[in-house]
Every structure is written in structure tokens, then in C-alpha cells.
Simulated scan of single mutants.
Amino acid sequence: MKSSTFTILLCVFTLLSCQRVKDKTQETINASGEAVGKSATEFIEGVSEGIDKTLEAKIKLSPNLKTKGIDTGKFTIANNPQGGKDNLLTLYLIFNQDFNDIVFVKVFDKNGLETGRAKLEVTGKKGDANYFDFTFGKRVEIEYRSVIIVE
């Protein structure tokens, strides 16, 4: 009787211990997986931010437009719905003075070679700001690390 009670208690203890070990192992695996997932996400975000910064095109505003009270803000480069790849520049212009003139945009690749031009009649009142779309030809592609001169 004592040996069967001892055997039953030993079996119950073993089963409970195995379940506890299994639960603890599962918790450890889940915590480790979560930590790895967070680290991987942070790594990927850091890499993509670094790529964005090194490959981003740069906007340069001419001194002439600055004296006429124009500043730039955000810009985007997209595919033109009429055809072409990365040939539509949307530029946010800020008017510190009244302005009504034609604005010219030239694009230079990373080697300093001109790749395209566009022009647009731009009108704005002092204190206003707006987005303007500069459309380039279908063969123009505003590449990474391009320099965009606004005159």
C-alpha cells in the first residue's frame, strides 16, 4: 500500500513538474521571440531610414526666388499618370511676398548631368502656401540622389 501510494504521488509530482517546465519553457520562448521581433523591426526601420537619407533627392532654391519671397517645404516624386516613371515633382511652395511668375525646375543626376526641365506658372499671395505639380517628359526619371534646382 505504501509503495502504491508512493508511486501515485511520484507520478502526480512528475506530471505537475513536467507541466510547469513545459509552461516555463513556452513563456521563455515567447519572450525571446518577442525580443527578437522587436530588435528585427528596429533594425529594419533604421536601415530604411538610412537608405532614405542617402538616396533622397535634394531641392535647391535659387537666390533669385528667395529674394522674391519664395520658400520650399515638402516635396514628393511620383509617376506621372500620363506616363513615365518618377517624372512628376510635387513641390510645396511658401509665399512670403505676393508672387506671379513662371518657375523653372531643372533636374541633375548624381553625376551632375542635367536630365530634365519643367516650368509652371505659379501665383500666390503673401502668407499663402500650396502644392504645385511640375510635370517632366515621359523619358525623364528623377533618380535617387538627384539635385533639383528651382529657379
Rank of each mutant, 00 (worst) to 15 (best):
K2Y: 05
K2W: 03
K2N: 13
S3G: 04
S4F: 07
F6A: 14
F6K: 15
F6R: 15
T7L: 09
T7E: 06
I8R: 14
L9Q: 07
L10E: 04
C11Y: 04
F13T: 14
L15K: 06
L16R: 11
L16A: 11
S17Q: 10
C18D: 05
C18W: 07
Q19Y: 05
Q19T: 09
R20G: 06
K22A: 14
K24T: 15
K24F: 08
E27L: 15
T28R: 11
N30H: 08
A31M: 07
A31V: 10
G33Q: 08
G33D: 03
A35P: 09
A40W: 08
T41P: 02
T41W: 05
E45W: 05
E45G: 08
S48D: 04
G50K: 13
G50F: 03
G50D: 04
D52M: 13
D52E: 12
K53Q: 12
K53H: 10
L55Y: 05
K58S: 10
I59T: 06
P63G: 15
P63K: 15
N64S: 12
N64W: 04
N64I: 13
K68R: 10
K68D: 00
G69Y: 01
I70A: 02
D71F: 11
D71L: 15
D71V: 14
T72I: 15
K74P: 01
T76H: 04
N79H: 11
N80E: 08
Q82Y: 06
Q82H: 10
Q82C: 11
G83N: 09
N87Y: 06
L88K: 01
L93A: 02
I94E: 04
N96V: 01
N96L: 15
D98W: 11
F99I: 02
F99K: 00
N100H: 09
N100V: 13
D101L: 09
V103T: 02
F108A: 01
F108Q: 02
D109A: 08
D109E: 03
K110F: 06
K110H: 08
L113A: 11
L113V: 11
T115A: 02
T115V: 13
R117N: 03
A118F: 04
K119P: 00
K119M: 10
L120Y: 05
E121I: 13
T123Q: 11
D128G: 09
A129L: 10
N130P: 07
F132Q: 01
F132K: 11
F132Y: 13
F132N: 00
D133S: 15
D133C: 14
D133P: 15
D133A: 14
F134D: 00
F136W: 03
K138Y: 03
R139D: 07
V140C: 03
V140R: 00
V140G: 01
E141R: 13
I142P: 00
I142F: 01
Y144D: 13
V147M: 06
I149R: 14
E151M: 11
